[in-house]
Nucleic acid binder design. Structure first.
Lengths: 371, 371
DNA sequence: CTCGCTAGTGAATCCATCA
DNA sequence: TTGATGGATTCACTAGCGA
């Protein structure tokens, strides 16, 4: 009995499939803490005229006599908070969520995220390179959409591939505003009539940046509003596993076909510029043990203002200071912290060389290839 | 009796003055339906935790003022809804409001606006030309702030000077994302010690665009969080009347002096914002995000002596070399530098084509507009 | 005068690991 | 859980100074 309950409440993850049904119900049937990333493109509630689908029918009856905007917002909020709650249950402790929206709904979504315990990491602006103009000239061209990136809770160790994103941006740290074109041309899926298959298909470039930046190969990515499956397609290309949830059969059919025709990039191409933080830690003492530096040898600070002597136990002695290479550097500079590896140099052939070259040498010998 | 009450509850509008006190109380003391536009820069409720240092060990001057501290979201929401209610009472039927904020508060503000009966017209993104970087490499550079523009209610005939904005934007319809620099240099007001007079002074260029776009000369503009009076200064320059409300005496003093020195149609300080045209930088990574190149695809050097593979983060892998298109090109050629755009080619129909054609294509699609 | 160099700074929810 | 420690981490722009 216990066993059966367990199995029923924690079924295997249906990886790389599209599940049919209401996303709240489906999510509640999946095992908790099993998903690394959720990307959600919920209904935008554009008109606020009651055309929303709701989590269950009993709630619909409660408000159908008052179609004023307040009641409509209330219904939308209830829907939002329910799917956000179900989504949060699915997230691993260090998982994260992205939600995209426009001014019609994003403020309500953002407030609901915060109220549900998520911790906002950034809001990111998708700045459309080719938006539709405002034909009537009564407002500004609506040229962007807003994405919110949030961790499951404050203090969680979310995934952020800083160096990879920096590489994508030609060596400059990625900003919170992304310029990307709309989904058009042959990327835009058509139905049998040649009309667009989905009204708000997102460009693959957007998902590429999201997934490269906040997941690793092998991660599980869930999209509760799967639509034509852009999230799944990019996840598959990038070697991530996906789970899609979609109510509408017509969208599911388009997505199934799309995913069947999608191929993963080769493994080597999925490797991404690694952060220095990932490199193994080398104790400074190893330099002495290996004879790269000798006890009594003098080190010079990068700015030439200080020097210190190496001791046999891998500590330094400067003017009235003893301690690690970092501690002595920080003390001499009066700074809160100091990276001793890049701060201290030795003299070789009259030239100053940072001691970090020894660390790089050791790492290379360990078979760790720098990027 | 009735007459006296009327007079007491409807005093004359204190035009072009700065009122001292709590903005909610002060607004409740002003006559209803008397203001054309409200511009509000409320506290963001940043919730900063510890100190933050730049990589050079200098400390970031945090916004840690008492006026930005709130005990909880709930307290912040209550405050927000109260001042929004007081502000709405002051608006003429066709009046409008602008509120600026960051992801810390803007979602709560936006939801409160909608719940209070305002009707959102646009959200507008201030894309900062020179934002502060993310020093620890843990998130995206927080490179924008969000403004919400809303009318008093749905269906109101708000002011929108379409043509004026279009000419401000060199003949192109104004979009919902505005590129403007931070308030720095001489525009940034200093106190007697030479320190910045206010931690979050907004650039005049931002207010210029807001007021040109959504008010007419002679309109009354109210700012309930006046600070150093940017709203008042730009309003005065543009021939609008202003009303400022500010709690802190030190800010009021700075603002009084500033406004005394401000002249109508003093455009000099605004012309700074004129867009400098430069060919937009296109990161190589965009070619992958846009599907022009695929991870795993091979590039060939112009001289046919080398080849390299594209990775998902926009870096290349050649023989024992990884890095940007420029770095790998330089390394393979043994050269100090290399323009990867013209060095690397792909094969199309058996012919070699430099990858620069893709960059040109993207620039053409963007219309070569930096904005 | 210009040019080059150094120093400073901006609404920021900004570390990871081990003892 | 807390505290100590290693050591990773920045972009665009302005002002000011000296040559």
């Amino acid at each position: 009995m216990t066993k059966m309950t367990k199995i029923a409440s924690a079924p295997a993850l249906p990886l790389n499939t599209i599940l049919a049904g209401d996303c709240i119900e489906v999510m509640n049937g999946l095992p908790e803490a099993s998903v690394d990333l959720i990307f959600a493109d919920p209904p935008y509630n554009l008109q606020l005229r009651g055309d929303l689908h709701r989590p269950d029918n009993s709630q619909v009856d409660a408000v159908d006599d008052a179609w004023d905007q307040f009641a409509s917002f209330e219904v939308y909020d209830r829907f939002t908070r329910e799917w956000l709650k179900a989504a949060r249950r699915l997230l691993k402790p260090n998982g994260a969520i992205w939600v995209i929206g426009s001014y019609h709904n994003i403020f309500r979504v953002g407030a609901a995220l915060q109220d549900s315990g998520y911790w906002i990491l950034n809001d990111v602006i998708w700045r459309k390179a080719n938006p539709m103009p405002n034909f009537r000239g009564k407002r500004f061209t609506n040229a962007h959409e807003t994405m919110i990136w949030a961790s499951k809770e404050e203090g969680a160790k979310y995934t952020f591939n800083y160096e990879a994103l920096k590489s994508l941006n030609e060596g400059i740290q990625m900003r919170s505003d992304w310029v990307l074109p709309l989904c058009t041309g042959h990327e835009r899926l058509k139905d049998d009539n040649g009309d667009k298959a989905h009204p708000t298909q997102k460009p693959e470039g957007l998902l590429h940046r999201v997934l490269v930046g906040s997941t690793n190969p092998g991660d599980v990515v869930l999209d509760p509003f799967f639509g034509t499956g852009t999230t799944g397609a990019v996840a598959k290309m990038l070697g991530r596993d996906y789970i899609g949830i979609e109510r509408e059969e017509s969208y599911r059919k388009v997505a199934e076909k799309r995913l069947a025709n999608t191929r993963r990039y080769d493994r080597a191409s999925l490797e991404v510029t690694a952060s220095k933080r990932a490199a193994p830690r080398i104790p400074f003492g190893q330099l002495i043990e290996r004879g790269m530096l000798r006890p009594g040898e003098e080190l010079f600070s990068m700015n030439n203002r200080h020097k210190a002597k190496v001791r046999a136990d891998g500590t330094l002695v400067g003017d009235d200071v003893k301690g690690s290479i970092h501690q002595v550097g920080a003390a001499l500079e009066g700074a809160p912290s100091c990276n001793g590896w890049t701060y201290w140099c030795i003299k070789r052939d009259g030239k100053k060389v940072p001691i970090d070259i020894f660390r790089q040498q050791i790492r290379a010998e360990m078979g760790d290839r720098p990027n």
